[in-house]
């Protein structure tokens, strides 16, 4: 954040544009069966906000800033931890019948 470079408005627009395309393409391939874990998973990814919250918290000067910073970290951490917990639980449940039930009818494409 205090690197030797700064992200100017135009560089930011490039980053946003490319990241937006990236997200669109990545999600476009996900089968409907995974939509709920995916929503939950992308919800987890924006939990990265906790990193920004920690940064803001560490740079807090006034008691007001400290109080708001506390809530920022609290909420951000909740987003990240909770999002991971539920997504991981959901995805761990997906199984294929190759192991579970060998006597399945052949799959129709």
């Amino acid at each position: 954040m205090h690197f030797e470079f700064g992200i100017t408005a135009f560089v930011a627009l490039y980053i946003f544009m490319l990241a937006g395309f990236g997200g669109w393409v990545i999600i476009g391939n996900v089968p409907a069966i995974l939509h709920t874990p995916l929503m939950s998973g992308s919800n987890f990814v924006h939990g990265i906000v906790v990193v920004g919250a920690i940064f803001a918290m560490l740079n807090a000067v006034t008691p007001t800033q400290q109080a708001i910073g506390f809530f920022a970290v609290l909420l951000g951490a909740g987003n990240a931890a909770g999002g991971y917990a539920v997504t991981d639980r959901m995805l761990a449940m997906f199984k294929t019948s190759q192991v579970v039930a060998p006597k399945t009818p052949e799959k129709k494409s």
Binding site: H46, V49, A56
Partner: peptide
């Protein structure tokens, strides 16, 4: 929102992760 605040804090990780979710969420 996370992406925009990422720009304010000059943190590319927030910008990219936020915007990826922004686009993915819109598509979904």
């Amino acid at each position: 929102a996370v992406g925009l605040e990422g720009f304010v804090l000059q943190n590319p990780a927030l910008m990219i992760a936020g915007m990826v979710v922004g686009a993915a969420g819109t598509l979904l």
